[in-house]
Design a protein around this nucleic acid. Structure first.
Lengths: 241, 241
DNA sequence: GCCGATTTGTCCGTATGTATC
DNA sequence: CGATACATACGGACAAATCGG
């Protein structure tokens, strides 16, 4: 439960929007300030979050317009750093993970240039197949820095690596940089995933950093193309320049 | 040129980071406040922008870590609402657009449920093939609200619709909501695009809103899968809940 | 382990600018 | 032109996390 005020206000407003309480626009910042008994700055931070998430759009001199419409996000929500387990809880689909390979190795030059992890470091390398609602959807190639994800085991990797790192190791996972591309399927992919009519899959390469700014993970997730969906909102910064 | 201070500071810091002036971390907020002769809040807004864009990551009690490494973004940069023309200027590749279909029509029920545009509205519907560096990369299906993009013509559509709307019509383009999926290729796709070995393509569906919060556009962009890349940074919000 | 210094995070109040109506 | 509403900027206070002695 967030004790932070703007977070609380953000959640409350978001809930109200989803419930249809504000079909066209939000009350004025002045009004919300009184309603929540906080400063205008705090209300503005909450509205800023709503804008980031595509719920509203504010216009100087006019007000704050509501853009919301029920999103059918039955699939993933990748706009947050979300673990598979968390995604499952949100979507109410049962999720299972099968570790099909687990080893420890040292980062050599080719591995370094693939993963961005520092050469010479000890790492865990594992492959995992992710099932959602009984279907094999994702084949993961995970590279974890041993010095950060210390004590990782196949058993833990079948549950949740992030939960282990946060709960047991007290590590804080903060930023992920991702790259999405589409690749032709390899024999290894067909071995684990049912690709259907598609001859390719979505490859999501991610680098994740902890609170100290250290990249401790590189993951290449190979997704079944027909079940992949990604949603995003963007704001236009400057017209000409 | 931004007259806004935090924007100016953001650009300056970003440039310094890319130039390698801060290989590990930024100076303290205190220091930057003095350096730029502004308030701490203003510095913090600039840093916030850098975080959003994945350049840095701040840690309470520690400082602000630099995450930057030269991204090879030869392809598109979709993390901003960017027109094809703007993308071309940035990547220094020559871009051309060919309008292969142009008509006006009224939004009926099926069109409404596809596009989200209000039923009964007059719209322009067009199909465009986008070439980057001489290759046909994208097949666009565009739906523009006639009342907002009034006066749109095939000639304008071969140049830049957004530039026309902003420069001539004085419209402000603000928010775009996008959905990315992978679809099997249709005969129409093969007619215009060289798909190579792939039997599918990346479909980007977008809804764009103006400053009044009115959705004036729906576009379905069908991208050659082998030339598609999308980059994104995300920050983890809350560990457990 | 405690304490104080440093550094970022949250929140407040106020003033002024700018766009809309 | 005035009233309204969002945008920017300043300054101050305190909380929370980190680090060194």
């Amino acid at each position: 439960m967030p004790t932070v005020r703007y977070e609380k206000i953000y959640r409350e407003l978001r809930g109200a929007i989803e419930a249809g309480a504000y079909p066209k626009e939000l009350p004025t910042e002045q009004h919300l300030t009184e309603q929540f008994g906080c400063s205008r700055n705090t209300v503005r931070r909450a509205i800023g979050r709503l804008e980031e998430d595509g719920y509203v759009q504010s216009a100087r001199g006019r007000g704050v317009f509501v853009l919301f419409e029920k999103p059918e996000r039955t699939e993933f929500k990748f706009s947050d750093v979300e673990s598979m387990k968390e995604a499952a809880e949100r979507t109410h689909l049962d999720v299972t993970t099968k570790v099909v390979y687990f080893t420890e190795l040292t980062v050599d030059e080719p591995t370094h240039s693939l993963t961005g992890l520092p050469q010479g470091e000890e790492i865990y390398y594992l492959r995992r197949v992710r099932f959602l609602g009984g279907e094999a959807l994702i084949l993961d190639h995970n590279y974890f820095l041993k010095s950060v994800a210390r004590g990782l085991s196949p058993k833990i990797a079948e549950a949740s690596v992030y939960e282990y790192m946060e709960r047991v190791l007290k590590e804080k996972i903060v930023t992920t940089q991702r790259k999405y591309t589409v690749e032709l399927a390899q024999p290894t992919d067909r071995e684990y995933l049912d690709l259907g009519d598609y001859n390719c899959l979505v490859m999501v390469s991610s680098r994740t950093f902890n609170a100290k700014g250290v990249q401790f993970e590189f993951t290449q997730s190979r997704h079944r193309a027909d079940r992949f969906a990604f949603y995003g909102q963007v704001r236009r910064r400057k017209p000409g320049k």
